[in-house]
């Protein structure tokens, strides 16, 4: 008797799509695609208290920004008042004036503007100073942000953000002026980005809160 060739019955796979969909939905739910964003900072190295040396920084090179426990802001010699938007505008304007030693901080009242050191920042020398030899850099300026024990974190971040914004505004202006590009690490070449960072070096000091 000839054996009848039997066809193996195929598995019904019509539900495997549903199965896969279920898994898919599970992964969709547990996935967090959003990458974390934040204001990146570098803390100063820890120095044991008996080894602390007072760094000599000339007074004209420091811009003190202070926030007290009532969230009132003192920047240089002036109070910053008004609504949050108004405050932000003032903070940014003042920081820009300080970094570039213009306006209120022109001449002796602002930080020392020094010539570019070709050894320390060759990119800046090559890309910007070659085009505009009058460029000066406020190398040793410091914006010192001081908070109180009771200052609200939201206010502190608002200040941090505006100070970063001041640098970014300046770098953006310079990027447009010298490279006709936006200040964006993806658009600029590495050397160009380095040159802009050297032109406006970010120097925000994270001073300790006063108790």
């Amino acid at each position: 008797m000839a054996k009848k060739k039997r066809k193996a019955p195929s598995i019904n796979s019509s539900s495997s799509a549903d199965l896969a969909f279920t898994l898919l939905i599970f992964f969709l739910v547990v996935t967090s695609m959003d990458t974390d964003e934040g204001l990146a900072r570098l803390l100063p190295r820890w120095v044991p208290e008996d080894q602390i040396q007072d760094q000599e920084i000339k007074k004209r090179n420091i811009l003190n920004v202070m926030v007290n426990k009532d969230n009132a802001i003192l920047m240089g010699d002036d109070y910053i008042e008004g609504s949050v938007e108004k405050q932000n505008e003032q903070i940014r304007k003042k920081a820009i004036e300080f970094i570039t030693a213009t306006g209120q901080f022109a001449g002796d009242r602002g930080p020392e503007m020094k010539e570019v050191d070709p050894e320390k920042s060759p990119e800046l020398m090559k890309l910007i100073v070659a085009k505009d030899p009058t460029v000066r850099v406020a190398k040793s300026h410091v914006i010192s942000l001081q908070s109180d024990y009771g200052t609200s974190y939201e206010k502190y971040i608002q200040l941090q953000n505006e100070l970063v914004a001041a640098y970014n505004t300046l770098r953006q202006e310079a990027a447009q002026k010298y490279f006709q590009k936006d200040y964006d690490e993806e658009v600029l070449s590495q050397d160009e980005a380095k040159a802009l960072k050297d032109l406006y070096p970010m120097n925000i000091s994270e001073a300790n809160a006063k108790y």
């Binding site: 964003e37 934040g38 204001l39 990146a40 570098l42 100063p44 820890w46 974190y153």
Partner: peptide, 25 residues
């Protein structure tokens, strides 16, 4: 939050040599 606890944490991070920080926002 108040800055008090944030500043204290920052000091501890400095002691632990964790200097690269980021304020999430």
């Amino acid at each position: 939050c108040k800055m008090g606890i944030v500043t204290e944490l920052k000091q501890e991070l400095r002691k632990a040599q964790c200097l690269k920080i980021s304020y999430a926002a």
